[in-house]
Amino acid sequence: MSELQRFNSEDGQSGATYKAQIEAHIRRLLLRGDMQVGQIYSANSMAKELHVSNSPVREAMMSLVERHLLELVRNRGFRVVELDSTDVWEIYQLRRLVEVEAVRVVAASRLDSVQVKRLEELAARTDELSKAVTRDDMFDYLEADHHFHLYLVSLTGNRRWVEAVERLRDQSRVNGLYLNLLDCGKVADTAGEHLEIVDAVVTRDVQRAMELMVAHLEYARTVTGEKVEDGAYRRPSV
């Protein structure tokens, strides 16, 4: 079944479920870079493309505005958020603050066997996908990477922490920026880093786990093709 065919009928689905499916579809387009920066997209035209009613599409796109992946252009539609160097720095800075602290908390805790197994499985999955990844299935690798990071943070037991990391990670990947991991040959490296992080967490080596996460997040400051230096980009105070 194609992605579009999944939306051909609303029968048997709650409005919330239907809207969530459409939102996930548009998110996929955004993170794959299939929606062009600067172009205006209307809910009406998107609904026609998906063969669905306008209302759930608009609701989904408004939700993505709230997640800072789209911008509302009054009386015209929605525009893809474009990241500049300041955006990259701000997102990287926040991710480093929250994800390094999360791995510290998790590594200092005592995970049970079920948690350890699941964490190892998710890391192994990214490693498996990295060995033969192509541009066509790069999004699948990035989603496996996403699931690994979110599960790791979920082990803090704090759902708001998970939600914050989920949003920051999506914001850093809008415009399909992370697809160039493949071009620069770093896919296998990032997957290997997952395995090292898991080892440090499971053995409760807190300092090593934190250092590995800091190094792992380094790519987040180079996604636009230039390395964003600490404090180099600051928005004017208001």
Rank of each mutant, 00 (worst) to 15 (best):
residue 4 L to R: 15
residue 6 R to N: 11
residue 7 F to A: 01
residue 14 S to P: 10
residue 14 S to D: 09
residue 16 A to F: 12
residue 20 A to W: 06
residue 32 R to K: 08
residue 33 G to E: 05
residue 36 Q to F: 05
residue 36 Q to N: 10
residue 37 V to M: 06
residue 38 G to K: 02
residue 45 S to M: 05
residue 61 M to W: 12
residue 64 L to I: 03
residue 64 L to C: 03
residue 65 V to H: 14
residue 65 V to E: 04
residue 67 R to C: 02
residue 73 V to I: 12
residue 73 V to T: 05
residue 74 R to S: 12
residue 79 R to H: 05
residue 82 E to N: 06
residue 85 S to M: 09
residue 89 W to D: 05
residue 91 I to W: 04
residue 91 I to M: 06
residue 91 I to P: 00
residue 92 Y to V: 02
residue 94 L to C: 10
residue 95 R to F: 07
residue 95 R to G: 13
residue 100 V to Y: 02
residue 108 A to E: 15
residue 112 D to R: 11
residue 113 S to G: 03
residue 114 V to D: 06
residue 115 Q to H: 03
residue 120 E to K: 04
residue 122 L to V: 01
residue 125 R to Q: 08
residue 127 D to K: 04
residue 127 D to W: 01
residue 129 L to V: 03
residue 135 R to Q: 09
residue 137 D to F: 00
residue 144 A to H: 03
residue 149 H to E: 12
residue 150 L to N: 12
residue 150 L to H: 03
residue 151 Y to I: 07
residue 151 Y to T: 14
residue 158 N to S: 07
residue 165 V to C: 01
residue 166 E to V: 01
residue 167 R to Y: 00
residue 176 G to K: 01
residue 177 L to V: 13
residue 177 L to P: 12
residue 181 L to K: 01
residue 184 C to V: 12
residue 185 G to Q: 07
residue 185 G to W: 14
residue 195 L to P: 01
residue 203 T to A: 12
residue 204 R to Y: 03
residue 211 E to A: 13
residue 212 L to R: 09
residue 215 A to D: 13
residue 220 A to Q: 14
residue 221 R to N: 06
residue 222 T to Q: 15
residue 224 T to V: 01
residue 226 E to Q: 03
residue 228 V to M: 08
residue 229 E to D: 12
residue 232 A to S: 07
residue 232 A to H: 07
residue 236 P to A: 09
